[in-house]
């Protein structure tokens, strides 16, 4: 028995998400009495790989092959499937991000293995294997029983705390067998350089229609940058073209789980909340004391966001100078 965790890397670097995955896998491994094998699709430098050992990986495997230079969903899924079969892994852990959502179901189909997508905690029991996952777009949790011998889990971002658990890990190179050349041909890549990604941000400052005009985003941006966070918005705001589409959160936008979500001039429609309800803390600023956003917020200010935001900016500056 072994537990395989697939940790994506971004140009040879891991993110906090990768470490969360290994931490989570070693939590599951502890319950199941299995060692954690971390797989990444290379190339990644040795120092960087050893970071995974800090969180409990006892073997770190780097798969390298010419056919793996670009992300082809089926090919990546084959690599992970092959290794899982070779190692007899009974649990496979991936991230519930773009890549994880792409490859996990393919692996599940290939292995006829049950998949729980977007889990936020450890299994509640191992035999039978039961685990809680998000359902009804955040309005409920489902306790899912996976009936197969191999179980596939995708972990929701920022849902599991890092726990250091140092191992003397070995690094192994792995050359998978790739039978078919990648089906996807990449014609162009448009990278968003240098900016903190919304899904990576631990603090997010977000604005809705109550912000009145795109010019007023200076306040949102200033507060976000002071707090080291990213900016977001509600759907009507991106529909109006006030903000880029990549910023809209909610059921039809990005689903995020930062430590802190500050919502200014956002009413709190269920479709918006679906994207942010996993935030650890929600702060709402709204001029209407009955706005539904206050039902999900821990801290609230009833007032004009265009006055409150500059006051918060001043308060953060003052706190920093103390």
């Amino acid at each position: 028995m072994s537990l395989l965790v697939y940790t994506e890397n971004w140009n040879g670097k891991f993110k906090k998400l990768s470490l969360e995955l290994v931490s989570y896998a070693s939590g599951v491994g502890e319950i199941m009495n299995s060692d954690v094998i971390a797989l990444t699709i290379g190339p990644v430098e040795e120092d960087e790989l050893m970071r995974l050992a800090e969180y409990g990986a006892s073997r770190i495997i780097v798969a390298e092959h010419d056919a793996l230079k670009e992300y082809d969903t089926l090919t990546y899924a084959s690599v992970i499937t092959q290794l899982a079969e070779k190692e007899g892994s009974d649990v496979i852990v991936l991230a519930n991000n773009n890549q994880g959502k792409g490859v996990a179901p393919v692996i599940a189909a290939r292995l006829a293995a049950g998949l729980a997508a977007g889990v936020t905690g450890l299994p509640v029991s191992v035999d039978p294997f039961r685990i809680d996952k998000r359902a009804y777009s955040g309005n409920a949790m489902a306790r899912l029983e996976i009936k197969t011998a191999v179980r596939i889990l995708t972990l929701a971002q920022n849902s599991y705390d890092l726990k250091s658990n140092r191992r003397d890990a070995v690094i192994e190179k792995y050359q998978p067998v790739i039978e078919n050349s990648p089906a996807i041909k990449i014609e162009d890549v448009q990278r968003q350089e240098g900016k903190l990604l919304l899904t990576d941000a631990e603090i997010v400052v977000s604005g809705g229609r109550g912000m009145k005009s795109p010019d007023n985003w200076v306040h949102i941006e200033e507060l976000a940058s002071l707090l080291g966070g990213a900016t977001a918005c509600s759907r009507p705001v991106s529909d109006e073209g006030w903000r880029p589409h990549g910023e809209h959160t909610g059921q039809t936008g990005k689903v995020i789980a930062p430590n802190l979500y500050i919502a200014a001039g956002i009413s709190g429609a269920t479709q918006h909340i679906a994207g942010v309800s996993s935030s650890k803390y929600i702060v709402a600023i709204n001029s209407d004391k009955d706005a539904p956003i206050f039902e999900v917020a821990q801290y609230g200010i009833v007032g004009d966001a265009l006055k409150v935001l500059p006051a918060l900016v001043a308060a953060v500056k003052a706190a920093k100078n103390d």
């Binding site: 949790m141 489902a142 197969t148």
Partner: peptide
């Protein structure tokens, strides 16, 4: 392969 045991 999977079954929801309960919702909460």
């Amino acid at each position: 392969l999977t079954e929801v045991i309960e919702y909460e």
